[in-house]
Nucleic acid binder design. Structure first.
Lengths: 134, 134
DNA sequence: CAGAATCCTACGAGATACTG
DNA sequence: CAGTATCTCGTAGGATTCTG
């Protein structure tokens, strides 16, 4: 293979003092942030995305933040980043096995979010400017 | 009834620009923060808790933060705060119907967190100084 | 007991410009 | 294309002190 993969490094998450329900906190800490849940959701739906496909799907995220979120997910071992050494650059993101194992969590979130749509905050319009690649 | 209840006010969450998976984001936005998930988890396990019971269960949370998280959850309509006009003060927190409906999400988080315990960050010791009331 | 008030810091997150 | 490099800002979260 001519691709370059980085293994998951040290987690950004540490210094936990454990308490009842800390498993909830541990799991939640991996998908917090404004975009991580959505990034995982997209990867679960579409298997593999490139950097600019994320940007198209998430028109309101900046490059810097997208990069940071992807790095964080990669560091935590939830997604895998594959760099194809071609020009122009080509980078693909996909779920790791661990990331894929979060599917029940993400789908529970999605299901709940959809079910309770009626009580979303005012500005929340359902899937307007939804951008699909292709 | 001699109790005082506050209804949910305006949500702290707004200004969403919708995108694919925004239902995930919407749901996640309600349980983000370092402690909200755990607070909900505790309420699901024990039905009703008082302020200091939260403090006992979560030895590392400060009063200020605990108050803020509870307020936020209350504002978002997930928990209900009942003040008994007695001295010394007595305040009880319990899930609203909406909050209870998050059970699948929380239990998915908990299940995942437990299942993947083996890869938790270093400092993460399972349920040491676990404090149960009673 | 259940907080309110005050102060402080780190970091998530956004805007903008530049690049191999 | 897929990022870095800076700069900036708001706010989540923490420490401490005080109170009805």
């Amino acid at each position: 293979m001519d691709t370059v993969k980085r293994a998951a490094g040290k987690s950004t998450r540490n210094t936990y003092e454990c308490h009842p329900g800390c498993s909830v906190e541990a799991a939640l800490s991996l998908i917090d942030g404004k975009w991580k849940g959505v990034i995982l959701y997209l990867l679960m739906e579409r298997q593999v995305l490139r950097f600019n496909e994320f940007q198209k799907a998430l028109p309101d995220i900046t490059q810097r933040v997208l990069t940071a979120q992807l790095r964080s997910l990669e560091t935590d071992g939830l997604i895998e980043r594959t760099v194809y050494p071609v020009v122009p650059p080509k980078v693909e993101y996909r779920l790791t096995e661990l990331g894929a194992s979060l599917a029940p969590v993400i789908s529970a979130l999605s299901a709940w979010g959809n079910e309770k749509k009626f009580l979303w905050p005012k500005g929340f319009k359902r899937d307007s400017h939804l951008q699909q690649a292709g």
